[in-house]
């Protein structure tokens, strides 16, 4: 019983971890809380349904198309709106509100196109569940956890081990100086958006397969919880986000199992507020001193 709860918690947590890792990377470079990220996440699952179930494209092609389309959408958002806002030197909150606007538009376009009911997400493989010490385990959970881990390693390598990553970190520290050093700032930022959103889209598809269903409200519920996960682990710190996601998933499942199912959705928000009040840099982040 307890072990089963632990397994369930890890399953939910690995989903949060998966989304949080990609989210964290974009934040690390741009210092932007990107609400549209969650909308693209859900959009990918819907696009997969459209491409695979309605247009009968091959499964792999459908997934790749969904990822690329979502990433292209994010690049459009960056080019059309966020870039001009950044050029105007508007306060950081303008960009946040702009992404809120985009997420509203995308979510409601999906609502308009697909309706508000929950839709089945197709999956081609049939993995049998297995038992371990009396707990039933869905092997897809392991795939999600594995993907989150691989993504974390890949993105850490990308930001700390490559020339591109060096440019990203330079931009996050000082955009002007990076420009002077010959970094093509617009190109790098666009690339960051592309990769970050493709990660979000991939997680959206995996979440859709795991719950075997998708609806537009997931954009908000899962999106904000993964934000809490990223904050808990220290936003911008990728391994922190992985741990943060797992912790939030576990806590949520234990609250649902032992205290009250109704309040389980509040846990992530309570953690979010507590972390920001007590230790804003999160579990793994370094405290930042603001300069005058």
């Amino acid at each position: 019983m307890h072990f089963q709860q632990l397994i369930n918690g890890l399953a939910v947590g690995s989903i949060y971890a998966l989304v949080a890792v990609g989210y964290s990377m974009v934040y690390g470079v741009l210092k932007l809380i990107n609400f549209a990220n969650n909308a693209f996440m859900v959009a990918a699952a819907f696009l997969l349904i459209l491409f695979y179930s309605t247009w009968h494209l091959p499964y792999g092609l459908a997934i790749i198309l969904a990822l690329v389309l979502c990433a292209a959408g994010a690049v459009f958002m960056e080019r059309a709106s966020l870039n001009p806002i950044r050029k105007k030197n508007a306060p950081g909150i303008s960009a946040l509100i702009c992404t809120v606007g985009y997420s509203t538009v995308i979510t409601n376009l999906l609502l308009y196109a697909f309706g508000s009911q929950t839709i089945m997400v197709p999956f081609v493989l049939h993995l049998p569940t297995f038992e371990l010490w009396g707990a039933v385990i869905d092997p897809f959970t392991l795939i999600i956890l594995g993907t989150a881990f691989v993504l974390m390693v890949f993105l850490t390598w990308l930001t700390y081990g490559t020339k591109t990553g060096e440019a990203m970190r330079a931009i996050s520290q000082n955009t002007q100086a990076a420009k002077l050093m010959g970094v093509d700032v617009n190109k790098i930022i666009t690339l960051t958006f592309f990769i970050g959103t493709a990660c979000a889209a991939l997680s959206g598809i995996m979440i859709g397969i795991y719950y075997s269903a998708v609806d537009t409200t997931m954009s908000f519920t899962i999106g904000i919880k993964t934000f809490a996960a990223a904050i808990l682990g220290g936003i911008g710190v990728l391994h922190g986000s992985l741990v943060g996601g797992l912790v939030i998933g576990l806590l949520e499942t234990f609250v649902a199992g032992y205290i009250s199912a109704g309040y389980k959705d509040a846990i992530a928000f309570i953690i979010l507020i507590l972390v920001l009040v007590i230790r804003p840099s999160g579990l793994f982040g370094k405290p930042v001193q603001s300069k005058v």
Binding site: S81, I85, I97, C98, G101, Y102, T104, V105, N108, L111
Partner: peptide
């Protein structure tokens, strides 16, 4: 709702 979102983006 889509129009709300668009207004938000355009205003900002």
């Amino acid at each position: 709702q889509i129009i709300y979102g668009l207004i938000l983006v355009i205003m900002i």
